[in-house]
Simulated scan of single mutants.
Amino acid sequence: MSSGGLGMMNCGDCLKWLGMDASTSVITLLDDPADLVRLSGVSWSLCRFVIVNKFCKSLCSRFCPDTLNFLLVAEVSNTSKSAEVGFSSALEWESLEREHRAYALLCHLIVSPEGKRDCIHRAVCASSTDNYPDESNENTLESGDLVDQRPSYWSSGGQYDPGVPESLTYRLTANLCVMREIKIQPFKAFFQPDHPIYLAKFVRFRMDHSRLREGTDDYEEQQLASDDYYKWTYVSP
């Protein structure tokens, strides 16, 4: 028998030959979630080892430490596995598999160049607008200073008390988005004397999901846009 054939016969038993500690040290050197997914497909023992030790979750936390704050991974599915597996109950194994799939996909989206794009789908509404629609918050999504040969900016209706906050609401492109940065561009009014620059005294970001039913149209969503219709679970300093 050739040495190549012997290698193929024993490739699934690398855990046995290396041992748990050495295998862990080698696997933690991987920096691509695709490699972890491929590794879990080599054999049942490697699959179990990768999933139980949560290597995908660990790799994901290296690129995005905030994932360590996740409390639960939920997955919508119409089917449920019920077969028993040797080392754990079916329920526990399903939970581990679900977590493995979720973190593998999330990590891929974080490191993949194809996944880097604008997370904002559209502007929903603003707490006030001075001159709608010419000065609406739709303008904040424009990269240039002009739209249809007119200045592109959002302007609030204004308040007597400068401490009263204004808000802009946007819908994201997906239910799960990974944000690496948020860009804010103050507006330079080149059409006014001395070209003043308008910017906020402070900015706060709030994120989570809408309580509105599926299928709510754009107009209805704009009419219902208030704190009563949104569940804010993250508020920045």
Rank of each mutant, 00 (worst) to 15 (best):
D13H: 09
G157T: 06
K183S: 08
V147Q: 05
H195E: 15
D66G: 03
W44A: 05
S82C: 13
I110P: 01
A74M: 11
L29W: 09
T24D: 10
F63W: 14
E138H: 10
Y229I: 04
E99N: 05
T24P: 00
C107D: 00
V111M: 07
D130R: 14
K231Y: 12
V164G: 00
C14W: 15
L36D: 01
N175H: 14
R122Y: 12
G12E: 14
W232K: 01
D161S: 04
L30Y: 06
G215H: 05
T28W: 06
H100E: 09
F55L: 02
A74I: 11
R117Q: 11
P33Y: 06
M9A: 08
E75K: 11
L199F: 12
T24L: 12
R213M: 11
L199G: 03
S155L: 15
N10G: 00
D148N: 10
S58Q: 15
A74Y: 12
V85F: 13
N131L: 14
V164K: 07
A104L: 05
F55C: 03
H121Q: 14
S112I: 06
C125I: 14
S226E: 09
W17I: 14
L15V: 03
D217G: 00
V37K: 04
A174D: 15
S156W: 09
S210V: 05
S210Q: 07
K201V: 07
K57S: 03
V42D: 00
L18Y: 02
V42T: 03
N10K: 10
V73K: 00
G4N: 15
L105S: 03
F205H: 02
K201A: 08
A123P: 03
F55Q: 02
T173E: 13
V147L: 11
Q222W: 14
T169D: 07
G215D: 06
C125M: 13
Q149A: 11
P162H: 08
K183Y: 13
E94R: 15
V178T: 01
D228W: 10
D134N: 09
K57Y: 14
R180D: 11
G115L: 12
P237I: 04
L36T: 01
S61H: 05
H209M: 08
M1C: 01
P196D: 06
A200M: 11
R62N: 06
C177G: 00
G144V: 12
G41V: 04
A34T: 11
G115I: 12
H209S: 07
G41S: 13
R204V: 09
G215T: 06
R62F: 04
M9T: 06
M179L: 15
Q223L: 15
S25H: 10
V52M: 10
R62C: 06
C64P: 02
D218N: 06
D66W: 09
Q159I: 03
V178G: 00
L212S: 02
A104T: 04
A34G: 01
N78L: 12
A104V: 06
R180T: 09
S3M: 15
S156K: 02
P186Y: 12
E220G: 00
G19N: 01
A126F: 09
P133T: 13
E75M: 09
V235W: 02
T173S: 07
Y234E: 00
D21F: 05
Y103L: 03
P113H: 04
M1A: 05
